[in-house]
Simulated assay, not measured.
Amino acid sequence: MNIFSIKSKVCFDKGSIEYLNTIRDKRVCIITDPFMLKSGAADRIINIFRANEVEYEIFSDIKPDPPIETVAAGVNKMRTFKPDVIIALGGGSSIDATKSIILFTVKILNANGDKYNKPLFIAIPTTSGTGSEVTSFSVITMGTTKFPLVNEEMVPDIAIIDADFVKTVPPQITADTAMDVLTHAIEAYVSKNSSDYTDALAEKTVKLVFQYLLRAYKDGNDMVAREKLHNASCMAGMAFTNANLGINHSIAHTVGGNFHIPHGRSNAIILPYVIKYNANLQGQKETEAARKYVDLSRMLGLPCSSIEEGVSSLICAIKVLIRETNIPRNLKEANVDGNELFNNLESVVDAALKDNCTRTNPRIPSKEDIGSLIKEIYGY
């Protein structure tokens, strides 16, 4: 038996932030990062609560790739304030950290006999990339290693997809995050846990990214393109929270974490190589993954008179997006220290194999496969 679930209520289109006017007579905690306060983005939320005389507090200590220490500080804040509503405002780091903070706060308080029901959780993404606003996934950092957590209790209750929050995102971050969206969709599409339901969301996501990424990259004031990518990010989140991902993310988690490459950029660099690996056109049998990659090529109107041409067309189209958005073609171009990478290759490979995303990759990788793939991705 398969299960498909979309837990989050999604408020979208221009001005959807006005949903917050429905919150009255509640204690609210806003979790965000310092930039959201400095830039004034958080003021849109604060002004609503001030006008409605809603009691609120702010926790703004979120850092990129949220370390476990940040999560612990947030838990201490929650244990004291005990909000009825928690709002995560920001990119994947803010939303991921908030998920972990909520999960650990509820468990700790209840374990200590201090009954505390899970607060209403509202996520407001300010980048069009992670889809974290509708997923059960959270990634936190311990030392230099990123640890993905998966728990249904971390799924936000409400996602507010308001493109006004992404209209000032710089071009390179727009590209990096949109390529993260594309990777989410493609990995969910070929996942062992894919279904008709997740495929529909993934297909639409892929189409939207190819149609609108370059428009948003070249003109940040193109609000149609911004809104379409913001919706695509959310839909990709719905797809992969049900279907899971694959080794593209497994490798990105460990390589990106160790070498400080933005997550979306890591995924973009890795994606063409993983598609080639998963398609396995050198194998004796035509693979299901290869057929599905061809389906995407056909949907995008790319040449696909054969399985080989269809897979190659998809890879080439992705490489065009990478080139046109100035994303490095390999890890060497991303300034990864080759000596450091290869000296630590065994631990990097082991971390990728143990990653939760690996279990649903369409092709079962060996340790040697991952090692060879990383060498290829480096540009070895």
Score class of each variant (00 low, 15 high):
Gly40Phe: 03
Arg323Ala: 15
Glu333Tyr: 01
Asn151Ser: 11
Phe4Cys: 10
Lys285Arg: 12
Lys146Phe: 05
Ser8Lys: 12
Gly264Gln: 07
Ala72Phe: 02
Glu53Arg: 15
Asp350Arg: 13
Val206Tyr: 02
Ile17Val: 15
Glu340Asn: 06
Asp33Tyr: 03
Ala232Ser: 14
Glu309Ala: 11
Ile370Asp: 03
Val166Lys: 06
Ser194Pro: 02
Glu187Thr: 02
Leu373Pro: 03
Asn330Trp: 00
Pro171Ser: 11
Ala72Gln: 06
Glu333Gly: 10
Lys285Ile: 13
Leu281His: 08
Gly220Asn: 12
Leu281Glu: 05
Asn47Ser: 11
Lys99Val: 00
Ile374Ser: 13
Asn278Tyr: 08
Ala334Leu: 04
Ala51Leu: 09
Asn47Ile: 01
Asn344Cys: 02
Phe35His: 11
Ala202Thr: 03
Thr130Asp: 11
Ser372Thr: 08
Thr105Glu: 11
Val10Ile: 15
Thr205Asn: 03
Leu149Ile: 03
Val150Arg: 15
Thr174Asn: 06
Glu57Ile: 06
Asn47Arg: 07
Ile322His: 08
Ile322Ser: 12
Ile87Tyr: 05
Thr183Trp: 00
Val294Met: 10
Ser128Cys: 13
Leu302Pro: 04
Thr174Arg: 12
Asn330Tyr: 00
Ile318Tyr: 08
Ala279Pro: 12
Val206Thr: 06
Thr70Asn: 06
Met36Val: 04
Val134Ser: 10
Lys26Ala: 15
Ala159Cys: 11
Ser297Asn: 13
Ile247His: 04
Pro171Val: 08
Ile102Asp: 05
Asp369Arg: 09
Ala41Trp: 08
Ile161Glu: 14
Lys207Trp: 00
Leu245Glu: 07
Lys9Trp: 02
Leu208Phe: 07
Glu286Tyr: 05
Asn52Trp: 03
Ile101Pro: 13
Asn335Leu: 09
Glu69Trp: 00
Ile374Val: 15
Glu187Gln: 09
Ala163Gln: 08
Glu53Pro: 08
